[in-house]
Design a protein around this nucleic acid. Structure first.
Length: 571
RNA sequence: GCGCCCGUAGCUCAGCUGGAUAGAGCGCCGGACUUCGAAUCCGUAGGCCGCAGGUUCGAAUCCUGCCGGGCGUACCA
């Protein structure tokens, strides 16, 4: 993906990001120094500007003098001095510049240099933070894709939260994103589903049956059987066993799938497309894909089965696509499916999988490459497991026994916002402890409310101000000049970071960065609020502060929106 | 055995693909409501970044080898 300095901002100068402005200033200084003969080499490394962790190190710093040292054959501190001498700052952007440590260049900005950020927040409003680094590239994010053999559980919820947020983030960065759910409505697990329901149905008829271990055990299976009994028991009873099982499978899968759709809708996830595996078979695409592999010699027969040479692309062993009994494997339809994704015009495909599927990545990647795509066009986000707790104690989750807490249960109990936010407070590769009691708590322990509270609080301030008629809302350049407090500048700086945080989140496909950013911004606001009054006796100061907090509200709202979490006006 | 992920404060976790004195929340202890929402804030304490080497101006971050935990290793999905 792009380097930070490759990002393009085609708007006018003042909407350019602070950081980028500093980068250009430094680069220009280095070139000027070179032209003046002060630097021996024109071999300049990439200018890296960062925001130092310590305030004592300024607003921005660069290590350029150090990274340049070997090419220039000069001491870093000496190079730093030369660059400083050649810095050109006609707008008086900089308060001062200093050389520190082994050769860091630290820049201190004049407080008013930050004010254009506020203006930009107002001008761009809901679009603040958005960029076009994706340049319209078509990306597909496929997530959840749980088999329609049972209700979604919390793990699927995490996958849904991550997949949906990644899609939103990429979309906000200028990618043309499609969200897709792949329905495994074909094959063995569907037959097992049908058989499970059928057996429960037989039990309802008091016929002696043994319910096998490998059948689906959950209570919902028995409930489905009762439904079928009421709806069309007689018809089913008239069929022979094979047809009866098929009918049960069709009915059950359809009911379960609509349940899944409802649960995801309640969770705030909206797909652009639901894609049926069965459709791949019916349309002949699976057969075509296998035929293509045959034609290109990427497949061979052994022991009566057909094997794909995934080892040609780094997998540790070859994989079966057609079993010796003539049935295709799940992998075969997956090959066809992924080929079809690229044929639909996506240049990049992102799959969100549970971490227990990681062994599947090499063969899928091999299949993608075998169809002529580049390795980088396929990316799997592996989401780690969720440990469900209640008050610190593990909640029994046995898939085999069919005892698990469903996503619906969790959403009903703790709410969509809390669930989504908490799912995104960890890097997706870290296992997540999800405590139901904690998720419901409306205290400091719960980051969702901590962030949402800021939004509600500022909305409330706004209403109060409107009632009193003391301060107009909106961008007010004159009043903004009054913002000089340390906490005020710190808040504006935090706002300025949002677009960069969003870009990093997109580049690394890591939604948790948004969550952490929002918690940080919220913390900055709460600290400010407790120290300074927004509504004061001074009308100009009040306008300026209202302008600031309103900007904070907008950014909080934008960030929460990316996470699929609401920004309430009151709580 | 082999492969992937994880190991950072008592607990749960960040750490912007190599930067300066490693951060936050919770918990502990001590403070702040007659004023815009206390679902909040302020302060104190707490660390061989699993261990040992290596790469370099510089490593929690990159490389190698161990230790510990999770997952995977099907003609299952």
């Amino acid at each position: 993906m792009n380097r930070t300095n490759a990002f393009q901002f085609s708007r006018e100068q003042k909407s350019m990001q602070m950081k980028q402005k500093i980068e250009q200033m430094i680069l220009a200084a280095a070139h000027r120094a070179r032209e003046a003969g002060a630097l021996p080499s024109a071999d300049f490394p990439e200018v890296q500007v960062e925001e130092p962790k310590l305030e004592a190190h300024g607003d921005f710093s660069t290590n350029l003098a150090m990274t340049m040292a070997s090419a220039q054959k000069m001491a870093p501190r000496k190079i730093a001095e030369i660059i400083v001498e050649h810095i050109h700052d006609p707008e008086n952007f900089l308060l001062r510049t200093e050389i520190a440590g082994p050769g860091f260049l630290n820049f201190y900005l004049a407080p008013e240099s930050w004010l254009p950020v506020l203006e930009r927040v107002y001008r761009e409003d809901t679009a603040f933070g958005r960029t076009n680094i994706g340049n319209g590239e078509r990306v597909q994010v496929e997530f959840v894709s749980a088999n329609p053999t049972g209700p979604l559980h919390v793990g699927h919820g995490r996958g849904a939260a991550v997949g949906d947020a990644v899609a939103s983030i990429l979309s906000a960065c200028g990618y043309d994103v499609q969200r897709e759910y792949y329905i495994n409505d074909s094959g063995r697990q569907i037959r097992t589903l049908g058989r499970s329901v059928y057996l429960r149905l037989l039990q309802l008829w008091d016929r002696p049956v043994e319910f096998p271990k490998d059948a689906y055990q959950g209570q919902y299976i028995a409930e489905l059987a009762e439904e079928i009994l009421d709806a069309r028991g007689k018809e089913i009873d008239a069929l022979d066993e094979e047809d009866a099982v098929a009918e049960c499978a069709r009915y059950a899968a359809s009911r379960i799938l609509s349940g899944i759709r409802e649960d995801l809708t309640a969770f705030g996830v909206k797909y652009d497309r639901w894609y049926s595996e069965q459709h791949l078979y019916d349309s002949g695409q699976v057969a075509d894909a296998i035929e293509n592999l045959r034609r290109t010699g990427q497949v061979y027969e052994k022991d009566g089965a057909l094997w794909f040479k995934s080892t040609d692309f780094g997998d540790e062993k070859d994989r079966v696509v057609v079993r010796s009994n003539g049935e295709t494997t799940y992998f075969a339809s997956d090959i066809a499916y992924h080929q079809e994704k690229y044929e639909r015009g996506f240049s990049r495909v992102i799959d969100v999988w549970g971490a227990d599927h990681h062994g599947y990545i090499p063969r899928m990647s091999a299949a993608v490459q075998a169809s002529g795509r580049d390795k980088d066009q396929f990316h799997v986000i592996l989401v780690q497991l969720v440990n469900l707790l209640r008050g610190g104690e593990p909640v029994a989750m046995s898939t085999r026994a069919g005892e698990f807490v469903t996503l619906k249960d969790v959403v009903d109990e703790v709410g969509k916002d809390a669930a989504r936010f908490l799912f995104l407070t960890r890097h997706y590769e870290s296992p997540l402890d999800f405590d139901l009691e904690l998720a419901k708590q409306k205290t400091n322990d719960n980051p969702v409310y901590y962030v949402q509270y800021v939004h509600a609080r500022i909305t409330s301030i706004g209403k109060k101000a409107d009632e009193k008629g003391v301060a107009a809302a909106g961008w007010d350049p004159e009043a903004a000049k009054v913002l000089q407090e340390l906490e005020e500048i710190a808040l504006i700086k935090a706002l300025a970071r949002f677009p960069l945080v969003l870009q990093t989140a997109a580049r690394l496909m890591e939604p948790h960065r948004i969550a952490y950013y929002l918690m940080d911004l919220a913390s900055g606001f709460h600290a400010y609020y407790n120290k300074h009054r927004v509504l004061t006796d001074d009308p100009v100061l009040t306008r300026g502060r209202r302008c600031l907090v309103e900007a904070v509200r907008k950014v909080i709202r934008n960030g929460l929106d990316l996470m699929g979490v609401s920004a309430p006006e009151q709580m």
